[in-house]
Design a protein around this nucleic acid. Structure first.
Lengths: 219, 219
DNA sequence: GACCTTAATTATCACTTGATAATATGTGAT
DNA sequence: ATCACATATTATCAAGTGATAATTAAGGTC
């Protein structure tokens, strides 16, 4: 009477994708050490050794998951042609509008994908190969791109008086902490911060605060 | 020839204090799960079972360490009589100066004791008994104290346009992320953010940004 | 100096972890 | 239908975890 459990066989891409998403949730919530491969596999109804089968190791899974998520971020941010605005040296006002939009997009992304900043924070608290890899591969490009833009906005008197090297952490922290710490924020404030309503309020608050002299948008 | 290793016998308070400090470093860097009691003990030249001897369990150690650190924060913040400024309904300008000072102190504390915000972030990413305990016991008092002050400053037109429920996370994030992520920040920016020079630049930047219409201090 | 309280050390336990090897089964090509 | 290959499952391992019990030694008190 013991009939063998029907095993769900899925395509390579399908199961890999599911494992990546599950990994992001676990790594984001528990950190690299705290997340267990068994818990990740269980999330998608798989068994633990499938992780070593589809990826080579826990670390490889982590790398693949982080690549996956940063690709998502890049996609979400690049409707903006910030680089071109800068390169063409066009009007500083246009740059300011583009920057404001970048802030809004970043806040929205942080709300919808808190795993990214959660993972960054979990890793950034102690030195490791993973931290060095993530910093150079994914964080530096963003940092290097944003820094000159901010300098220009400051010279134009549009941006708040924050050093361009510190800005990265001020912006990331101000934008993402409430979503990184969402379980705490729900307990503390009683609100659900990931609501579109609150995300908008948050984003507009940051825009007005970081770019206090943003000109009126006249299209 | 095998002479017994001289064992360092210390007073109860001494070894407890040392274990607490070591625990903060490990918990801050690795999170609760990631930190091992053996690593904590090793930091102070002790053996792992001493943790269960002087504290009851890993969790009790964590609680004691967090209490210890928040007591330190309270001490660092309370030269300010923010409460009184509020209660006496005295001039809003004085409140603003006090608030600015609070920001400076908080930034300085975050730089000198990154473990606090590291631990908060590690715990806040997933629900747990520890998170609930820490939120209600230590975070809520600060949150509840600051919120009405900020409302008053906003009404007076001194504070930046950020909702008072969100402010907590905007401020904590903007002030502490660079120190929480210091290992990353060093790699990324090439500067040492915990220098008094950079801490001052950071703090003043936040004050000007969050309180853009702070009156000139006239004593 | 003997004694006793308290801290330190050693040995060991049950449990969880990531990984590997061996086996079983699903699926498409022929 | 059969076969070959790719995916799933099971069993197992060594390493590391927090905790406990048993033993040893330090330091003050008389």
């Amino acid at each position: 009477m013991k009939q063998p459990k029907a095993r769900a066989r899925r395509t390579r891409e399908d199961i890999r994708e599911r494992l990546l998403e599950a990994a992001l949730l676990e790594f984001g919530a528990k950190g690299f050490q705290g997340a267990s491969t068994r818990a990740i596999a269980k999330r998608v109804g798989a068994h633990q050794p499938q992780i070593n089968y589809h990826f080579d190791s826990k670390e490889s899974l982590w790398i693949a998951a982080v690549d996956h998520l940063f690709a998502h971020l890049t996609r979400a941010m690049q409707g903006l042609e910030l680089l071109q605005k800068l390169d063409t040296s066009s009007g500083v006002n246009e740059l300011a509008f583009a920057f404001a939009d970048m802030i809004r997009r970043f806040v929205r992304f942080a709300a919808e994908h808190p795993q990214l900043n959660q993972i960054m924070v979990h890793e950034a608290t102690s030195e490791s190969g993973r931290l060095a890899w993530m910093t150079e591969r994914h964080v530096r490009p963003l940092y290097d791109r944003v820094r000159p833009l901010w300098r220009r906005l400051r010279k134009a008197g549009i941006a708040a008086p924050i050093d361009d090297r510190l800005l990265h952490y001020v912006l990331v922290g101000a934008a993402s902490t409430i979503y990184v710490n969402a379980p705490e924020a729900r307990l503390l404030t009683g609100i659900e911060p990931t609501t579109t309503r609150w995300v908008k309020i948050h984003a507009e608050g940051l825009v007005s605060t970081l770019l206090p002299n943003l000109p009126r948008e006249t299209k």
